[in-house]
């Protein structure tokens, strides 16, 4: 949330509002693609900010280059690859799925599985160490149903 602070510190000239109308593409569909790609590219000098959100000169250049590639007919992935070829995966705010990021992308799933295992272990231990809650007796069951009916 405080990203502007740094981008301001790094500025070399007067800032412009990010994404200037002058640099936008005529074709709204192409411009929309440019915005979508821009939101996933890192402004390299502002660290945690996309080039779309940044006032930095380099971000402005990259926005223009993205638009040039789109106008030249590149696909979205080709545009991103163009920048990855020059700046590395670092330029992608959404890291690609490769051996370096397997743990990152599968991590949340792994954590969820681990959490599930912890839960299962808890109930198993509970069953082992103490008797499980007794099932309802027939009478209790009838009583429960009666209450349910009253309430429902």
């Amino acid at each position: 949330m405080k990203r502007l602070i740094l981008s301001l510190l790094l500025l070399t000239s007067a800032p412009a509002l990010a994404v200037d109308p002058a640099e936008m593409l005529k074709d709204p569909a192409q411009e929309a693609r440019a915005r979508e790609i821009g939101a996933e590219l890192r402004c390299l000098v502002c660290q945690n900010q996309s080039i779309d959100d940044s006032d930095a000169d380099l971000a402005k250049d990259l926005r223009q280059i993205v638009r040039e590639r789109i106008s030249a007919g590149d696909s979205d992935s080709a545009v991103k690859q163009f920048l990855v070829d020059r700046y590395g995966d670092y330029v992608l705010l959404k890291p690609p799925f490769n051996p370096k990021t397997w743990l990152l992308w599968l991590g949340p799933l792994g954590l969820a599985l681990a959490a599930g295992l912890v839960g299962r272990a808890y109930y198993r231990r509970q069953r082992r160490e103490g008797a499980a809650p007794q099932p309802l007796s027939a009478e209790e069951q009838r009583e429960l149903e009666r209450i349910m009916k009253d309430q429902g």
């Binding site: 000169d57 402005k60 250049d61 990259l62 223009q64 280059i65 020059r86 700046y87």
Partner: peptide, 14 residues
């Protein structure tokens, strides 16, 4: 000159 195409080709950030 801006947008510094050659600099971007070099992967320049500053």
């Amino acid at each position: 000159p801006p947008p510094g195409r050659t600099a971007v080709d070099f992967g320049v950030t500053g």
